[in-house]
Each structure stands twice: as structure tokens, then as C-alpha cells.
Amino acid sequence: IGSLMYASIFGNVSAIIQRLYSGTARYHTQMLRVREFIRFHQIPNPLRQRLEEYFQHAWSYTNGIDMNAVLKGFPECLQADICLHLNRSLLQHCKPFRGATKGCLRALAMKFKTTHAPPGDTLVHAGDLLTALYFISRGSIEILRGDVVVAILGKNDIFGEPLNLYARPGKSNGDVRALTYCDLHKIHRDDLLEVLDMYPEFSDHFWSSLEITFNLRDTNMIPGSPGSTELEGGFSRQRKRKLSFRRRTDKDTEQPGEVSALGPGRAGAGPSSRGRPGGPWGESPSSGPSSPESSEDEGPGRSSSPLRLVPFSSPRPPGEPPGGEPLMEDCEKSSDTCNPLSGAFSGVSNIFSFWGDSRGRQYQELPRCPAPTPSLLNIPLSSPGRRPRGDVESRLDALQRQLNRLETRLSADMATVLQLLQRQMTLVPPAYSAVTTPGPGPTSTSPLLPVSPLPTLTLDSLSQVSQFMACEELPPGAPELPQEGPTRRLSLPGQLGALTSQPLHRHGSDPG
């Protein structure tokens, strides 16, 4: 009997000691992992102490058991019943959930998450997105703005933001810190809205009876308010094209079509300037034949640059190039080494500058006005007194259609001029006259002087055409309008007829 009692007592005591040691061994194993994590990542002392304290409290609170892992091991129907039991206190005593059906309560219970916070733990920081609604079931918390405590909340209090009033989550206007050990039930806004969409009859009752104890939403960050730039940057990543407008005076608003859609830094370009900076079609017209890549860069430059609305530039004389043409100036200075066709295309550029300027006046029909002061630039669209967005969009579309028509007509005119030049060069190729044979009589004449090349004649003739079109064909006081194609086609051969009437002889060394 004594040996039996000794064996039973010894066996029970050893089993008890073994169970104690097993729990202690698990605790030390998990604690060792936490300390190894702290050492590996070199976490500083204040945060390291918070980690160790939280682990110790969580171990004593749950005995080292992962409740979520245990809950996920059950089937979904059983999980709903378990969640309904775990959140029964909240669902029974909170006013917004009263009167809900059994199915609605089960769906809500599945969406709730339980959070346990030790003292000093910050649940929400200032500036964080308010993605959830919090219900306090135990403990107390404090809300701070800077170093000032603005509120202390306790059991059955609710904090967050009214989700039904805002389409997008706002930002917190303060820090939420736990004063004691707290148990909180939180539900994400997407989950709550999903359940309320499934039960629309409960939705009206819920929003009407929901009383948020403390609204954390920062009202200064609401979209459309003066301080909402940061919020707009976070939620409006896919922005449309940006529009900046110059201020319109009362006198300017009476004149229709007073602005032109141009790229940034293009205030001095012609009315047909689009795409790359520098001139019509993204580059100076005089350098068009020598740089074919300008047409390839036109599309990307047009689509990537934001639109700006600026006044037209001052008018340019008909014979003056659009500006920024070092290529043609070098050719004029060193005409001995340049291609003979460069002079002809220089005359073509003069005609283009004249036609572009006159067509700009035809479509816009307003006098040039000086540029406004820099303080009046970049007025935002949302400022008071601005035109409605639809009106601005319609004006932009009208300007775009005008620019497209202008570009089409300029292309047709350019093709006409090039065809005339090619026809003239085919009839009378460039050549130098040879020395004529002296006559049989004693009164022999001296050799004839060489005839100037055709490109120079073409430049003079085209300059005469531009001056003739600019000065004589337009009646005084009438708006400057571009001439039609047949009129220009008839004027060019008439001007060139006198020049080509002389018999030109080919030089023996000319390969053409």
C-alpha cells in the first residue's frame, strides 16, 4: 500500500511539474524568437521594450494561443456562430445594431475584428487614413492633437468618421493612444458598406441611429477645401490634362476667341504652333527640309505637354522668318557652300510665315494684346468667377478644330508651292551661260556676264508674291485673308516669265 501511494503521488507530481515546464519551455522559446528578432533588426531601446511588454501581456492574456488560427480551423457556418458569440456584447448593447435580422448580425459579426491594445500603444496616428470604424468594449483611450489631450473615450464609445457622408476615406486629425488595456472591435469601411448593401432595409436605420462619439476626420483635408492638395495627390493619381488660365478682364471677355491653345513656353509662336517648341509643326519652317525628324516628334510632343491658354504674339512682318533660324542665316552668309535649293526654301518659309499670320487673323479676328503681368498667370479653374468647365471645354474643342483646319490648309498650300517650284525647275534647270562666239564683223562684242542661278530668282519672285499679296490685293481696312490656291498659281508664272525669257546656255562643266 505504501509503495502504491508513493507511486501515485510521485507520478502525479511529476506530471504536474512536467506540464509546468512544458508551458515555461514554450514561453521561453517564443521569447527567444522575439529577442532574436530584436537583435537581428537592431531595434532601439524604447521600441524594444514595448515589443517585450506586449509579448508578455499577450502570452498571459491568451496563454500563447493564436485565436485567429484556431477560429480559421472551423467551417464557415461554425465561424459565424463563434463570431456572433464573441461580439454578442457589442451587437446587443450598441444602439445602431438593434433591430437587425439574424442574418445581418451574422454577416456583421464575420466582418468585425477584435484588437487588444496595451497602455501607451498608439492605435491611430495623425494623418493616417481612416479605413475603419472603432467600437470600444473595454478600457479607455485618449485622443491628442500635438501634445494636447482633446478627448478621453471609454466603454461603448465610437470613434472614426461617418462613412455615409464621404465617398473616400479621410485623414485623422489626431493621435489615438490607449490609456489602459483596451479591447476594441473594428470593422473596415469596405466590409461595412458591403453588408449594408446586402441589407438595404437595415442601412437607413443604421446610419440614422449611429452616433460617433469623436469624429477623427480632418475637415481641412476634404477635397475642394484650401488644404486638400495632399489628399488630392493621394487619391487622384490618374489626373486628366491640367489647364491653367490667364485672368480675363471685362474688356477681354467681350471679345470671342481671344486665346489660343499652345504648349508651355510657346507664347511667341504662331497660331498653328503645336507639339515641339520653336515654330509651326514643332520646328522652324525654314529647317523643315533639312530635319525630317521633326514630323516624327510632333505626335509625342503634342500628347505629353499640358495645355496652356495664352494670348497671341505680336504680328510678324511678311518677309521675316518666324524666328530662331540660325540654319538659314548661316546659309545666307556662306552662300557659296550651301545647297542652291536652300534659297528657294527660304522664300517658301517667308510665304508660310505670311500665310500663317494672315490665317491666324482670319480665324481669330481680334487685335493683338500685350501679355498680362506675371502675377495674373496660372489662375486655377476652381477659383470664384471662372467660367463653367463645359464652356471652357467647348472653347478648347473649337480652337482645336480651327487649328486642324489651319494645319490642313497650310499643308495644301505648301504642296502647291512645291509643285510650282518643281515645275519651274523642270522647265528651266539651273545653269550658267557659256561665252558666246564673236560675230564675223570687226565690231565684236565682249563675252556675256554669267546669269544668276535660278534659286536666287525664285527667292526674289516669291518675296514679290508675298509683298504683292500682303499690300496690293487686300483693300484698305479689310481683314488680311489668305489668297486662294488658283490665284497664287496664276501669279507665280507671271512673275517668273520675264526672268526666264532670256536664252540660257548650259555650261560645259555643268553635270545637269
Rank of each mutant, 00 (worst) to 15 (best):
P479I: 06
R506N: 08
A269F: 14
S375M: 08
P503S: 11
L184H: 01
P486E: 15
E211Q: 11
P271E: 06
H205E: 08
V150N: 01
F312L: 14
S313C: 10
S290G: 13
S225N: 12
D413Q: 01
S304H: 04
D157F: 01
P455N: 11
R359C: 04
V176T: 03
E211Y: 03
T373F: 06
E325Q: 07
T213Q: 03
T445M: 14
P442W: 08
L165W: 11
L196E: 02
L163N: 04
R274W: 04
F354A: 08
D147M: 03
P384R: 10
L231C: 10
D128F: 01
D183P: 01
L377I: 08
I212R: 02
E393G: 08
A261R: 09
R401A: 06
D357Q: 09
P162Q: 06
Q483R: 08
S342E: 13
L449T: 08
G139L: 02
A151C: 08
F159E: 02
R189T: 07
S394L: 15
D252E: 08
L418G: 06
G512L: 04
Q362M: 06
Q400C: 15
I222N: 12
P479Q: 06
Q400P: 03
A167W: 06
L130P: 01
A344H: 15
S314M: 13
S335Q: 09
F345M: 12
N164S: 12
P315E: 09
E329D: 04
D197G: 10
A431W: 10
L179Q: 09
T458F: 11
L366D: 05
S304I: 14
R361D: 07
Q464H: 04
P285F: 13
Q502E: 14
V149H: 08
D175Q: 15
S287M: 15
P370T: 06
N164D: 08
P430H: 11
Q502V: 09
L421H: 09
E254R: 10
S446E: 13
H205R: 10
A415H: 08
L474T: 07
Q402W: 05
T458G: 11
A431M: 10
R386M: 15
R248A: 10
R387G: 07
R248M: 13
L462E: 15
I158V: 10
F345K: 10
E142Y: 03
S284R: 06
N339L: 10
I222K: 07
K186V: 13
L153Y: 01
T445N: 12
M469R: 13
S137Y: 11
E472L: 10
D413M: 03
Q464A: 10
E473C: 13
L420I: 10
L459V: 12
S303E: 12
A267L: 12
P453Q: 10
G494P: 12
S286C: 07
P374K: 12
F345I: 11
F214I: 07
A470E: 11
D460N: 13
L196F: 10
E329R: 14
C471T: 09
L210R: 02
Y181I: 04
E254Q: 14
S383F: 08
G146P: 01
S411H: 10
P476L: 11
D204L: 12
L377V: 11
T500A: 11
G439L: 06
M221V: 12
P370K: 09
I141D: 01
A412G: 07
V392S: 03
Q364K: 05
P285H: 11
L179S: 06
S314K: 09
R241W: 10
K333Q: 09
L144V: 10
G347M: 06
L184Y: 10
P315D: 14
R401D: 15
T131L: 06
L309P: 10
D252F: 13
L399H: 04
V148S: 12
L376W: 11
L309Y: 10
G441H: 15
P442Y: 04
F354I: 12
S284Q: 05
K155M: 08
L193G: 04
G497V: 10
S394W: 15
T337M: 06
V148Y: 08
P455E: 10
P476K: 09
L193V: 09
R308W: 03
F345P: 08
L376D: 09
P388R: 09
H185K: 11
L462W: 01
P370R: 08
L481G: 11
S466E: 12
D147T: 11
S346C: 06
P169C: 10
E393H: 14
P475N: 09
P321E: 10
L504R: 09
R168W: 10
S342V: 08
P271R: 08
G299V: 13
V149G: 03
L210Y: 03
R316C: 15
S353W: 03
R387D: 11
R247L: 09
R217M: 04
E254V: 09
L403S: 05
M221H: 11
T436Y: 12
T213E: 03
L153T: 03
T337A: 11
D297L: 07
R405E: 03
M328H: 13
S444Y: 13
R368E: 10
H185W: 04
Q255I: 12
G234V: 11
P280Y: 01
L381Q: 15
F206V: 03
K155A: 11
A132Q: 10
A434P: 13
Q464W: 04
G508M: 11
G263W: 09
G324I: 09
L231E: 12
D297V: 14
P289H: 04
G160L: 03
T408P: 04
R405P: 03
V465W: 13
S314Y: 12
R387I: 13
